[in-house]
Write a protein that binds this DNA or RNA. Structure first.
Length: 610
DNA sequence: TAAATTGTTGGATCA
DNA sequence: GTGATCCAACAATTT
């Protein structure tokens, strides 16, 4: 009886601690084990076996594995379950190839507290739309597994011939093109330019160096977690709504979300390390959903909602659980499938300008601009900061479709999880999960509440750094004398080449916009359509919003199909820098990381340099 | 069953 | 500075 020859495929579990799938691979007692990654990363595997390391193969898994199975005489493929929409599609292709090659596939769940598919089953097949539902379903699934110890050793890898044709991935459309300084040369050879299965460098990918200060990898994750756990009071009494979105260096929250995203830190390990502190702390500890473990419940809730709904979870059209609101800049859709295409209609030039100014951090509202610039530079902002800017773009200011905002977050957030991103945008836009649309974040008061001095604004909006705190959230109110004293003039619309020493005027009157939005939401709630409604899909929803001259929510919209289709096409926004998102997520051959995500690569490289 | 309560994180005003 | 109250009011869950 020959021993198994196993490929261990790293995916969203870039760690050795608490990896049920890696444990399953080792339980096979393999003769050889290849730790492979079909993208880019690195790990401290060599510490366990000097002959081994993370082997990065530069080809899409859909085409690569069927060739590897044969060339390496593989008997088993082991990996961690991925319930993302793209992940499921990709894995189905790989599993089919394995079946055809007679390779046994072993899959283990480890990305969430509970297996999301099991949660859905216990929630009667429905998406978990509240924390209570998630908690009840989770209890019925069973106890959250305790973490598994990291392996003490690893088998040798086998021979790794790559003497087969490389299938060049399809790199068009290249959504990262606007961010590249050079050409993407990462795909020249399967084993890399030196044949050593090395991680791609930034230069190979054609990207400039990263701007974020965040670094990653498993050892840094465990170190950061250890430090948090040490502070028992912080850990046990943590209440998310009481942490400040204006605090930076250090941030008020744990900053562990990027590690969770890459799987460098196990969510179960996080949970139990915290839970043990909470149990020990006893009376006075906080509890879910506000507590630290409660934050992990939200993550599981969104993952299980996505597991139940699939692709429609990421859009309004066809989604029965999302309220229809006639937002500006709605997504274009494929007429037959109803799926969004990644482009959108520009129904309002004004809204398009607002969206651009929001994205670029030049709205003229310093609190919003500081957060958007921090997001772009660091790839991370505090959860309540995300609330502020998301509310502002959608139901509390611009009345722009939440799908536009979600695309920007997808591009810039280091900790971006498709499920959490879509779910939180639905929450903030009051289209699902949350409905109190009259609770609206003010771009002035909310910042003031947390940061009277305006330190976050001064850091990320340096034009205003010397402005008196009296005007720091409302610079347009500063008398000319005060502006002069601070070396800034409030003028312009923030677009194009901004004159040095200026900061833009606010792009609208916020109280006025707030009222427009709230009445728009009120109307949309009264109409009561959901994303799967036929009238939403065929455009006759317009008949239910009857007064075209009443408010902007009554503006004429174009959606695909119907008599407006031609005009809709004419007005469609050109596919440009903003059009990141759905398509990229579906195509692993397109490098996953735009510039802000470059740190993803650096963080893993840091592993060995610790 | 209908009514009351609760829901991770609002703002303005006033005591 | 902090807490209570109102604002105008949704939806799920509990009682």
């Amino acid at each position: 009886m020959t021993k198994p020859r196993v490929i261990y495929w790293f995916r969203t579990d870039l760690r050795l601690h608490d990896s049920p799938a890696l444990q399953a691979a080792l339980d096979l007692d393999p003769a050889v084990l290849w730790p492979v990654f079909t993208f880019h990363s690195s790990m401290s595997i060599t510490e366990l076996n000097p002959k081994s390391k993370l082997f990065v193969l530069r080809e899409g898994p859909q085409t690569l594995f069927k060739k590897l199975f044969k060339a390496w005489r593989v008997t088993h493929l082991v990996f961690e379950k991925d319930t993302d929409v793209y992940g499921r599609e990709r894995d189905a292709v790989v599993v089919k190839a394995a079946e055809e090659a007679g390779v046994e596939v072993v899959v283990r769940s480890g990305r969430t507290l509970w297996d999301s598919d099991e949660v859905v089953k216990k929630n009667n097949g429905k998406p978990t739309m509240s924390i209570a539902q998630l908690q009840h379903a989770g209890e019925r699934v069973g106890d959250i597994p305790r973490p598994i110890a990291a392996p003490k050793s690893l088998p040798d890898p086998g021979q790794m011939p790559v003497d087969f044709e490389q299938d060049e991935p399809d790199t068009q459309p290249d959504f990262n093109e606007p961010s590249r300084e050079g050409k993407d040369t990462a795909y020249k050879d399967i084993a890399g330019p030196n044949g050593d299965f090395a991680t791609e460098t930034m230069e190979e990918l054609g990207f400039p160096s990263a701007t974020t200060s965040i670094r990653g990898g498993e050892s840094l994750a465990l170190k950061a977690l250890g430090k948090i756990i040490e502070d028992k009071k912080y850990t046990a009494t943590f209440e998310k709504p009481k942490t400040s979105p204006a605090q930076f260096e250090p941030q008020a929250t744990t900053l562990l979300s990027p590690f969770l995203h890459f799987g460098a830190l196990s969510v179960r390990e996080f949970f139990w390390r915290v839970q043990d502190v909470v149990t020990e702390y006893g009376k006075g500890a906080s509890s879910p959903p506000m507590s630290l473990t409660g934050q992990l419940y939200f993550r599981d809730m969104y993952f299980a909602a996505q597991a139940a709904l699939g692709a429609p979870f990421h859009q309004t059209a066809t989604n029965p659980y999302i309220r229809f609101v006639p937002w500006h800049l709605p997504s274009k859709r494929d007429i037959t499938s109803g799926m969004v295409t990644g482009e959108y209609h520009v129904d309002s030039e004004e809204a398009e300008i607002w969206f651009k100014r929001w994205r670029n951090g030049v709205t003229g509202f310093p609190w919003i601009d500081a957060l958007m610039r921090q997001l772009k530079q660091e790839g991370w902002i505090h959860h309540l900061g995300r609330h502020s800017v998301a509310c502002f773009l959608t139901r509390g200011g611009c009345y722009v479709d939440w799908e536009r905002g979600a695309e920007v977050f997808e591009e810039w957030l280091l900790d971006h999880e498709p499920a959490c991103n879509a779910g939180n945008w639905q929450w903030l836009s009051c289209t699902a999960f949350f409905a109190q649309y009259y609770r609206c974040y003010s771009p002035i008061s909310f910042g003031q509440k947390w940061d009277k001095e305006g330190a976050l604004v001064r850091k990320y909006v340096p034009e205003l750094k010397d402005l008196d705190k009296k005007y720091i959230y409302e610079p347009w109110k500063a008398p000319i004398a005060d502006q002069k004293k601070a070396g800034v003039r409030v003028q312009g619309d923030g677009l194009g080449d901004r004159e040095k020493g200026t900061y833009p005027k606010p792009m609208f009157d916020f109280p006025e916009r707030r009222n427009v939005c709230i009445s728009g939401l009120k109307k949309a709630y009264a109409v009561g359509l959901h994303g799967n409604d036929e009238r939403v899909l065929n455009g006759t929803w317009r008949d239910l919003f009857p007064s075209p001259d009443e408010a902007e929510v009554m503006n004429e919209y174009d959606s695909d199909g119907g008599e407006h289709a031609d005009r809709a096409d004419q007005r469609t926004h050109d596919k440009g820098a903003q059009q990141v998102g759905k398509k990229r997520a579906r195509n692993e051959s397109v490098p996953e990381a735009p510039p802000k995500k470059q740190s993803k690569r650096q963080q893993t490289l840091n592993f060995r340099n610790k």
